[in-house]
Amino acid sequence: MNELLLGAFGALLVLGAGATILEHDPYKKIISLSVLIGGAIPFIVDRGLLDVATAVALIAPLSTIFILMAVRRAAP
């Protein structure tokens, strides 16, 4: 991975983390958390751990759906 790609995915990580911390609405926080996950997956693929990347990419939306179960009960 060269420096431009590293800067791009690092910027995705930092932007997603900052937006997740600073938002108020739970739905907007979950959307920003999805930006953070999209920045973190290419680092796993770049190390060559492709099985781990597949497993994490399938498990991470499951975790988000679990959070969404609590948000739907409490937010309205």
Binding site: L50, T54, A57, L58, A60, T64
Partner: peptide, 20 residues
């Protein structure tokens, strides 16, 4: 094998966006 990880990420994030 990279295409398998990309397909898994694609399926997972589409499911997540639809759920939201």
């Amino acid at each position: 094998l990279t295409i398998l990880a990309a397909a898994a990420y694609f399926v997972g994030t589409t499911l997540e966006s639809n759920a939201i």
